[in-house]
């Protein structure tokens, strides 16, 4: 009886070793042959949104540079957290990559709810940056942000500003504005950017904290007025709009979208993916298609990483003061 058990144990051990070697062998082989099947892109939001369009456009034009198709899988929920977690926990074989969007990706870490850290991701590229902007209705008496600050100081608590709700970039922008200028604009959380737009256009709130791409058409049509953008420098495509910074209030806020793989995938595979991204994001057809849909701001992994770490500090600070 004892002998049988020992024999079985030895056999089992041997089997495991063989399997281990075999697995090791296939791993290397897998990296060399990669890719042999389609690569899934986990999109952490619903079909039809901005992040989804970015991923689908990338998938369409990556075909030229990658032998296998990229397949978009939407995994929305919990402000992107479900999708980010699915990406962080995905198999590290290069067949699953995903999207990140800010500030949610760091906001979830700050709130302590995320089951991932920034180290869970091997960043590939940031693609889109949609800067924050403060808009008012075109018939509003406010022409500059100083008008707003003056009005609010005269009559504290009289002004309202629409945001997309706690934990989003618009909420952060409003909070920063209030803190920096020493005022108290009341936050009116709306349902998504379309809700914000409807409220500010309808005159139900005094201003809205939004993103540039969401309001460009309305500004062009003369329905909304941009007061200031939340970028370090003026935007090349909006040279007339001042930044908050030059008006003496240091606010930088945006919503960025990019791609990452789960950390810990074999380096050879990571390089292949990185190469595909760098080529696709420079592809003239991709650039043509994304014109008007995506506000491109390509960041290489290093720069992207620095951007996210910086953002994490900011969201940590805000969470301490006004948690959500």
């Amino acid at each position: 009886m004892k002998r049988t058990v020992t024999l079985l144990m030895v056999l089992l051990l041997f089997g495991l070793m063989v399997a281990g070697v075999f697995a090791e062998g296939t791993k290397e082989k897998a990296a060399a042959n990669y890719p042999t099947k389609p690569v899934t892109i986990i999109v952490a939001s619903k079909a039809g949104g901005g992040t989804d369009t970015m991923a689908r456009l990338f998938a369409k034009y990556a075909k030229k540079y990658f032998p296998q198709p990229f397949v978009v899988v939407n995994k929305p929920g919990a402000g992107g957290q479900l999708g980010f977690e699915a990406l962080a926990n995905a198999k590290k074989d290069g067949y699953t990559i995903g999207t990140l969007f800010t500030p949610h990706v760091t906001a979830h870490i700050s709130s302590g709810r995320a089951k991932y850290t920034l180290d869970s991701f091997a960043l590939l590229a940031n693609v889109v940056t949609d800067p924050g902007v403060l808009v008012v209705k075109s018939d509003s008496p406010f022409k500059t942000i100083n008008d707003i600050i003056a009005a609010e100081k005269k009559n504290p608590g009289s002004l309202t500003g629409a945001t997309t709700g706690p934990g989003g970039d618009d909420f952060f922008a409003l909070t920063k504005f209030n803190n920096a200028a020493g005022i108290h604009i009341k936050e009116v959380p709306a349902k998504g950017s379309s809700g914000e737009k409807a409220e500010v256009l309808g005159g139900h709130v005094d201003m809205a904290f939004m993103n540039v791409s969401q309001v460009l058409s309305n500004v062009k049509a003369g329905e909304l007025r941009m007061l200031a953008v939340m970028t370090p420098k003026r935007l090349s495509y909006l040279p007339d709009i001042p930044t908050f910074k030059e008006l003496g209030i240091d606010i930088v806020s945006d919503s960025s979208r990019g791609f990452a793989a789960p950390a810990g995938l074999p380096d050879a595979i990571y390089q292949k993916l990185l190469d595909t991204f760098q080529k696709t994001l420079k592809d003239p057809d991709f650039l043509k298609a994304s014109k008007g849909v995506l506000l491109l701001n390509i960041m290489e992994p290093k720069e992207y990483r620095a951007y996210l770490e910086d953002l994490l500090k900011t969201t940590n600070e805000i969470y301490k003061k006004s948690p959500w």
Binding site: G77, A78, G79, Q81, L82, E85, R113, K115, G165, P166, G167, F171, P189, K191, W324
Partner: peptide, 17 residues
């Protein structure tokens, strides 16, 4: 929707929204 406080989810991420 107003304060962002997460109610009655018992920590299940799938219920946050």
């Amino acid at each position: 929707p107003i304060t962002g406080y997460i109610r009655f989810t018992w920590g299940i991420t799938d219920l946050f929204e």
